[in-house]
């Protein structure tokens, strides 16, 4: 994979500016605060992509809340992994039984990872579990899962930035942009 020293050069188009994201995150935080008023909330972030979103969102929620982090393996399709199954690489650090849980995702496209995570988390008997995703790419959806809080519905393009990567690069961009094909086509 080749990437420019100035990562901005690999971005064909800024899809969501830093300001647009900030406004939307504030709006989501207000909605979540209103919906869960009088309750305690546990935010569960799915590493690594949702980290910036989680960090910004939690500061816009005016509720007593806990945070937790999870990481799951991604399909790689190598010879050794081809017979494998998705794995929880980092599990919750505290029980969630009887708690209201909000799963925080950066992007939902096929829904395969989310489908797996929801099944896993429901097995831990939370009081409720809902999903908040900054980005929704419905054109790629395979598993239809209701998403309770969506920041932006985006077109069918390969996006990076604000936590989203390609080959572990571009996560630190402050905006969400469309990656130039030259950056991922060898």
């Amino acid at each position: 994979m080749k990437h420019s020293q100035d990562l901005n050069e690999d971005v064909a188009e800024v899809l969501l500016s830093e300001d647009q994201i900030r406004v939307k995150v504030t709006e989501l935080g207000k909605r979540i605060s209103a919906d869960y008023a009088g309750r305690e909330l546990t935010l569960v972030s799915v590493l690594k992509g949702s980290l910036p979103f989680m960090a910004d969102l939690m500061r816009q929620i005016d509720l007593p809340l806990r945070i937790d982090l999870m990481e799951v393996s991604s399909y790689g399709g190598t010879a050794t992994e081809s017979s494998g199954l998705v794995r929880i690489l980092k599990d919750l650090s505290a029980p969630i039984d009887g708690r209201d849980v909000l799963l925080v995702e950066d992007i939902i496209d096929t829904g395969l990872t989310l489908n797996y995570l929801l099944r896993y988390l429901r097995g831990k008997n939370p009081r409720s579990i809902k999903v908040c995703s900054l980005l929704d790419k419905p054109a790629r959806r395979l598993v239809e899962i209701p998403i309770d809080y969506v920041g932006f519905e985006i077109p069918d393009a390969f996006v990076v930035g604000y936590g989203l990567d390609f080959g572990e690069v571009y996560r630190n961009l402050r905006f969400v942009g469309v990656l130039r094909p030259e950056a991922y086509e060898s």
Partner: peptide, 12 residues
Amino acid sequence: AEFARILDFYQV
């Protein structure tokens, strides 16, 4: 076959 492996991986 590749698609099936992905479904298997995510236990679908």
